[in-house]
């Protein structure tokens, strides 16, 4: 085995732990695709990460407060600036934009744009958007490789992201019109859906992320 392979095998993926929901399912799905993962709540540890998953459920306001109180916001910013591959999931994706309507919260700003609530005036559409829905890839990306037309992922959310720059929209999904269901820039990619709960296609995405060097 070459040295570089040894190095690759020793990479541990850090799952950012900031009291934003149940992270065990993300870890289990990582293990299923052979990705060694551990939880991380320490900003100094996070700063040295080589691969990061940034999950989260709950509300934007409390999530941001929790990140800041632990100094994890700054550590995340640093790893992203260093080109480390980072995968945001659900709320972890939403707070990577500039602003969320949820709790009127200023968020991390890795990607320009905002997060808005689904309109509630159409009685036939239920909020949260909960269940399986199609993800249509708009820009090819190593992490989205192999996702085909008709592939569905599992969603649970009442808010959705709108990046300012269209090139950051990697995939879209239709619910009250189209919204960005995967966004990305440089070594950061975020999904509104839950790959860890999306069966084979979700595991495939995680496997792609496990192989990704952070280059687009």
């Amino acid at each position: 085995m070459s040295l570089s392979n040894n190095n690759k095998a020793s990479i541990v993926t850090l799952i950012v732990d900031y009291d934003a929901g149940n992270l065990a399912s993300v870890k289990r799905a990582c293990e299923q695709v052979g990705l060694e993962a551990e939880f991380c709540a320490d900003p100094d540890h996070l700063r040295h990460a080589q691969r990061v998953i940034f999950p989260g459920v709950g509300a934007a306001g409390s999530a941001m407060a929790s990140l800041k109180s632990r100094g994890l916001d700054q550590a995340l910013r640093e790893v992203i600036n260093n080109g480390c591959p980072v995968l945001g999931i659900c709320l972890g994706m939403q707070i990577s934009l500039d602003y969320s309507e949820e709790n009127d919260t200023a968020t991390l700003g890795f990607i320009a744009g905002k997060v808005s609530r689904f309109r509630m005036d159409r009685l036939d559409l239920k909020v949260p958007h909960m269940g399986w829905n199609e993800v249509c890839v708009q820009h090819t990306h190593p992490v989205l490789q192999g996702i085909e037309a008709g592939d569905e992922f599992y969603f649970v959310h009442g808010y959705f992201p709108t990046p300012k720059d269209n090139s950051a929209v990697l995939a879209t999904t239709d619910y009250e019109g189209h919204f960005a269901s995967a966004i990305g820039k440089d070594s950061y990619i975020g999904t509104q859906f839950h790959p860890e709960k999306s069966g084979r296609v979700g595991l495939r995405l995680l496997n792609n992320f496990a192989q990704w060097d952070g280059q687009c």
Binding site: A24, S25, R28, A29, E31, Q32, Y154, E196, K197, S198, G199, R200, G202, L203
Partner: peptide, 8 residues
């Protein structure tokens, strides 16, 4: 179940 079934 949770360690082998990746749906809700």
């Amino acid at each position: 179940v949770a360690s082998q079934v990746f749906i809700p």
